[in-house]
Design a binder for these strands. Structure first.
Lengths: 258, 258
DNA sequence: CGGAGTCCGTTACACAACGTTACGAAAGCA
DNA sequence: TGCTTTCGTAACGTTGTGTAACGGACTCCG
């Protein structure tokens, strides 16, 4: 069972659920994050209330998986605080499985309460159920404001994931090429190593070969993208190589909301 | 614990929830109804699919507590049918508590799945959680009549199962194509794997497990549906492919009552 | 200047996922 | 019974992407 997705042939970007995983046990957290990512979501880690707050305030979070026992802190309290201000769905996760403990979770506003240890597939199903209800009940799925990137005469529209050449001709990028372009556009003038690019691509979905050992895949991918967006691929002006480091998007990018 | 609070933040009075209790065991049904009524809701009895249908079509129902085993009938099937036409929240209740049985419940669109025997107080808490989320996310939307789906100029009426093209011409879909469209409409923007689609179709679709081994059946079915509802089937804008995942209904769907 | 090692660009290839078509079996209908 | 529709299966074509191999370019060091 897969949770989400993000790109399809033609390179359209989709809304990927962003799930905040809150647990102070690093192993547990990593396990959950890895599993959720394998099933197609963007899973973000947090270990305490401050980190939760930072994520919620800072970026979009579609769902919170909240452990009850967080060292000194109390997940129930965090849940209650969140619920006062936010509509973000919350699923409590806890080793405390007694009925009255579960009811405490629901009492502070949790949408679901799952006892540890749990079957990951079942967790996934319940995550999906909560996300599904959230989406279903808004009669029309609300669209986020999208951004348009411009660089060197080129245009990239984040919503439609379409790339237009300077002559307004649409260029077809593959999924992976689109993902690479997105990563680069998000980090202009910042050299990125192959590992950084690879993990970024994996977070945004796609495959998880994980074995970055003989990883010339990024080089080939870069080459292919250059063939499509560089005027002269042999002498790249946009996607440049930093020898011994990685690649840079070495050009100014104008970002505008639509 | 009270099920409904008289007032919420902002001072508006909240309606008393109407809960439909579906169970063919009369004692069980009565117990649940009495308990729910004691806790401030309007609980209505139903013992089979026809009674459920009558209640849903006839009056306002805020939540359905649906037993899985209903004599000859299957609660899962009823759940799926409801989910295709209605947004009413559904909590499955069942003596079948194995993980895969729970997951089947979530797969057909249940909002929660509670195993018998259960703690009544915990049931109440979960009922509250589901109702709470429903109110939070859709304070204005009625969930009463048959739904009409609109996407990209197309119209699908859940009750008559008719599909109208943008030019108001009725398009004939086969039974299986219609079922697929229903599944997709119920999960817009959520990628579905072939297994998920197949099991969803099978719950209502009489067809047998059909050994999903060489299962390209879904692909072919998707292709056929695309040929009917996509302007350009070669470049699908509605029913998109998520490589390595499955398919998505990647378009905003407006749901309205009729 | 030159040589060796490293890093990178490029091409070809293999493979997996998906689209498409044809065909036949089963079910519905006259 | 014969015709039509529906739908799963099989087979083949297409596309996207990682791997491997080769060769060029750069760097360090003498």
């Amino acid at each position: 069972m897969k949770l989400h997705s993000q790109k399809v042939k033609g390179g359209k970007a989709m809304a990927i659920p962003r799930i905040l995983v809150v647990d102070d046990d690093m192993d547990m957290r990593q396990m959950m994050i890895q599993f959720l990512r394998q099933n197609g979501s963007i899973a973000l880690p947090a270990a305490n209330g401050a980190e939760v707050r930072a994520h919620i305030d800072g970026g979009r979070v579609d769902l919170v998986l909240l452990d009850v026992m967080l060292g000194d802190e109390n997940g129930l309290k965090i849940c209650q605080e969140l619920r006062r201000e936010q509509d973000v769905p919350i699923i409590m996760v806890s080793a405390l499985s007694a009925d009255n403990q579960r009811m405490e979770g629901y009492a502070v506003g949790a949408d679901d309460y799952i006892a540890k240890p749990f079957n990951p597939e079942l967790l996934l199903a319940r995550v999906k159920a909560v996300l599904s209800r959230t989406r279903r009940t808004s009669s029309l799925v609300h669209r986020r404001n999208t951004k348009t990137f411009r660089f060197n005469g080129w245009t990239y529209d984040a919503k439609s994931s379409q790339v237009l050449s300077p002559d307004k001709i649409q260029v077809a990028l593959s999924r992976r090429e689109t993902a690479l372009l997105q990563v680069l556009l998000a980090n202009p003038h910042i050299p990125l190593t192959r590992e950084e690019i690879a993990t970024s691509l994996d977070v945004t979905g796609e495959t998880q070969p994980a074995n970055e050992a003989s990883g010339r895949a990024i080089d080939v991918l870069v080459g292919r993208l250059r063939n499509k967006i560089e005027a002269n691929p042999k002498d790249p002006q946009i996607l440049k190589t930093e020898r011994g480091v990685g690649y840079v998007f070495a050009i100014d990018v104008a970002v505008s909301d639509t």
